[in-house]
């Protein structure tokens, strides 16, 4: 446990040593802020539904950008060898990096807490869906970080890791908007695979175990796959 914590803290600090953290956070806030507030006053509704509706799409580009370096850079520089020959196991490394990336993505969301505070001042805000939305956002961040981590473990090239990560996250995000292309028999199954549907439930303020289980499964599957890739590459 402590090995995971040490690795996670190191990786988390790493984001702030380089300019990555500041650039990504700024860019995230500009993109999300613009898309959310550009239509917010037209509808004049005091909720964050549109903000949460944006998140899966925005995350599917931002999260792979954060995770692409986690393994690819280490392999490229060679520090992966130094890390693996210390008394740590694959599990420690994968989980440590996963928690660091998820924690950073959550940190990225912290400034957006000013949105509900600001909205509650000008209107009657229902805090239930807001809390649900943020809980869902943590699960969504975790799932996309696990996918990004898996993509990064596949290659030593950060750009390839980013593209693979984006492709996987983007697919999960848009899959339930593609349902009309699918044969009607499997629509329900495909719909279940989409991250958007499950996340939407959270942002309505519903904490359904099915949705929680979906995200936990997604995280587990991709962390396990990362573990397999690490083993296979050695």
């Amino acid at each position: 446990m402590s090995q995971i914590k040490i690795i996670a803290l190191k990786e988390f600090k790493d984001y702030f040593i380089s300019p990555i953290a500041y650039i990504v956070i700024a860019l995230f806030l500009i993109v999300v802020g613009w898309f959310f507030f550009s239509t917010f006053f037209i509808y004049s509704r005091a909720d964050l539904r549109d903000f949460f509706a944006l998140l899966p799409m925005v995350f599917s580009f931002f999260v792979p950008a954060l995770t692409m370096r986690l393994f690819a850079e280490e392999k490229n520089v060679g520090s992966y060898e130094t890390l693996l020959t210390m008394p740590v196991s694959f599990v420690h490394i994968a989980l440590g990096k996963f928690f660091a990336a998820t924690l950073f993505t959550c940190t990225m969301l912290v400034p957006t807490l000013s949105y509900p505070i600001f909205i509650s001042l000008i209107g009657d805000l229902d805090w239930g869906p807001v809390a649900g939305g943020y809980i869902g956002a943590v699960f969504l961040a975790g799932a996309y970080c696990a996918i990004g981590l898996f993509a990064s473990a596949l290659t030593r090239n950060q750009i390839i890791a980013f593209i693979i990560g984006c492709a996987l996250c983007f697919t999960l995000t848009i899959i339930n908007r593609m349902l009309f292309f699918m044969p009607s028999e499997i629509v329900a199954v495909i719909e279940y695979f989409g991250a958007n549907t499950h996340f939407a439930n959270f942002s309505k303020g519903i904490l359904d175990t099915r949705d929680i289980l979906y995200f936990i499964s997604l995280i587990s599957i991709f962390l396990f796959s990362t573990h397999l890739v690490m083993q296979e590459k050695n």
Partner: peptide, 19 residues
Amino acid sequence: LTIKALMGYLPESAPLYHN
């Protein structure tokens, strides 16, 4: 893990975390 703890290893050209 136990064996790794007994050893100190310097890989070729000492790859470290540059930042």
